[in-house]
Design a protein around this nucleic acid. Structure first.
Lengths: 200, 200
DNA sequence: TTCAATTACTACAGTCACTGTAGTAATACA
DNA sequence: TGTATTACTACAGTGACTGTAGTAATTGAA
């Protein structure tokens, strides 16, 4: 976990983090589309071009570190506990992905800001959904490897899709009616349980 | 169904259709991002500005008429047959939305082109997913109205989300491994059945 | 038929996300 | 110490999308 990075790489990570920090601060102040990429790079004291060397799109600066979440879920599937059955593994993987990582970067405020902006900013919402879709494919593959006798190439994606779809939809609907974090959390867990039942 | 439209409105629909036709033709010829909006408007013989009076984004020209699909599903839910239970209604609504409308505009080639381009074009894929999400909210609301004793404000979105998520994921995965239309269709139906089981 | 209100469309100028390219200076490595 | 790599910059450009003001056709009423 303690990577020995060269000086060059450390500098690169520093500018990357500076861009993220600047973006988060400006977005919180003024809202997503009231901030230009040029303003972010100004605040981070780098050239505008540099932004796009680190992030493919303006939205992606808010999706930083989402890979980590997916990796957590993949690990959770791979580390299948003794005697654990399909629904349990699936729920544990989703739990890792959503709540463990949630707690982790709630401190940085990135996840909270992302959720808030995704609700109001269509471009960001669309990009986030797309990220979910690619994550789904990875999860489905891992899950099928873990349960080769139980899942085929059709049911594995369907099952993961149902999970992610149910959890997302319940979260969105909870957020839209103004629920607080705890209620959103409960709604998501309830959705997970609903889908888990279909494979019990 | 036979709307009496004024001359002005008919002209408007004609330019709208001209834009769609021109876009589809050009996209099929050269691919999505090799065609500019300016070229579409040139082909349709209108000004570039006119395009954005009819469609919010370049992607939206390919999402034309998707409202109709959602409306079909909403009708299917409202016209709940005698003695029909939750899973049956849900499956029938999804069926209407996906396959009935599919057959309908397969002739125009729009649905087929959309599916093909959505697989390769991230921007379009993202927009399509977003459209699904908004449709989900409507479906969940309608479904809860139809089954007020069975569904609450948490389970209704979760259930619809699971359905849409499962069907989408299975379709994507089938398309990615190069399945033909029939196999994709089967995968989608199988996904629907999987989720329907969870509420049986 | 005539006049006034509405509106689909156009022309034009501008913003901003994003890209290609060529150059510079710091780091890495032999 | 010299050479290769590479993160970054400067610059010029493309293309999606917007705001605004004007024109001409449709509409509905006098």
């Amino acid at each position: 976990m303690v990577e020995k990075l060269g000086l060059r790489e450390r500098k690169k990570q520093r500018t990357r983090q500076a861009l993220i920090d600047a973006a988060v601060r400006l977005f919180e102040d003024r809202g997503y589309d009231q901030v230009t990429v040029a303003e972010i790079t100004d605040a981070a004291e780098v050239s505008p071009r540099t932004f796009f060397l680190h992030f493919q799109t303006k939205e992606d600066v808010l999706l930083a570190n989402t890979d980590v979440r997916v990796d957590l879920a993949l690990e959770a599937i791979a580390e299948r506990h003794a005697g654990e059955r399909l629904p349990e593994v699936l729920v544990r993987a989703m739990d890792q992905m959503i709540f463990n990582a949630w707690d982790h970067d709630l401190s940085s405020g990135l996840a909270a800001l992302r959720a808030r902006l995704a609700a109001s900013e269509p471009a960001l919402q669309a990009r986030l959904l797309q990220r979910y879709l690619t994550a789904q494919a990875e999860l489905a593959q891992a899950l099928q490897r873990a349960f080769p006798d139980r899942l085929d190439t059709t049911t594995a994606p369907a099952l993961v899709g149902a999970m992610v779809g149910a959890v997302s939809a319940s979260a969105v609907s909870a957020l839209q009616r103004g629920d607080g974090p705890d209620e959103v959390r409960n709604a998501m867990r309830q959705a997970m349980a609903l889908v888990a039942r279909s494979v019990a």
